[in-house]
Design a protein around this nucleic acid. Structure first.
Lengths: 137, 137
DNA sequence: TTTAATGCAAACAATTTGCAGTAGA
DNA sequence: TCTACTGCAAATTGTTTGCATTAAA
């Protein structure tokens, strides 16, 4: 069987993620982890995050050209996201239940690990000025 | 006011997109467009696609490290997507209506231009072998 | 001891951008 | 004419990967 090991760096990444609801990206997480384990590499952070996503503990918000943002699935806090195309800000959206799908809607044998509901658009800031504002979140 | 011009290359990109339901990426579209206008650049394709997305005519499926896939919004064919984390294949999922949101769910003043419902998971192929298969779609 | 996980750095690939020239309006 | 749009190529930047080493189990 595939053996998964409990390492210090892995624990640190998980801890950082659990402690933040700011949808951080890999670089930010890396910085935080380094406060505790200064020599952890960005590569390790990425590998750990990938594993957490595969395990379904973490959800991603992915945008082309932008750093992927990671969101720890805190239990009892189901929610979706509103993403601003202008500045990249991510807002939590109170969970509305995902609609039930007709049994045949998904390809036969497709195993769903996660469902994302994302509202793309412009935040109040970016909606006004044609430009768009500066920094995320 | 911002002046939008009707150019040959722009028409070609739109045409290619409308003619395909395969969720192509920019490079593929570029190749197709070049069959008609051989000297069109990839940069132009990207700029055109960005414009179409902003205008709400086209939807994107974005995955970190992967090329963004583009989906023309054919009228009367509302659907969502199932995306395989293994091979990247994208399946259309018959539309189930997006749940109505409580009025206060979105940040005040947030203008929604598009709603995405994505089912992430493993397709039949990739679900069996621990490895995962080869090519998209 | 066994081998998964790590750090490092180089490699990749998708996307963006600056600029001078082209062509819609 | 005026300036948005284009082609080209270079530059960014997020993410992945190879490899020798370290440390869980």
């Amino acid at each position: 069987m595939t053996m998964v090991r409990q390492t210090r760096q892995r624990q640190a990444v998980i801890e950082v993620l659990r402690a933040s609801r700011e949808h951080p990206d890999a670089a930010w997480i890396h910085g935080r982890v380094r406060q505790v384990l200064p020599q952890v590499s960005l590569g390790t952070v990425y590998r750990t995050l990938d594993a957490l996503v595969r395990d379904g503990l973490v959800v991603t918000i992915e945008r082309a050209g932008q750093a992927t943002r990671y969101d720890y699935k805190h239990e009892g806090h189901d929610h979706h996201h509103a993403v601003c195309r202008g500045c990249g800000a991510i807002f939590d959206v109170e969970a509305a239940d995902i609609p039930a799908l007709p049994p045949s809607a998904l390809p036969a044998g497709f195993q769903v690990t996660d469902v994302r509901l994302e509202f793309m658009g412009l935040c109040p800031q970016c909606g006004n000025t044609s430009a768009g504002t500066s920094q995320p979140d």
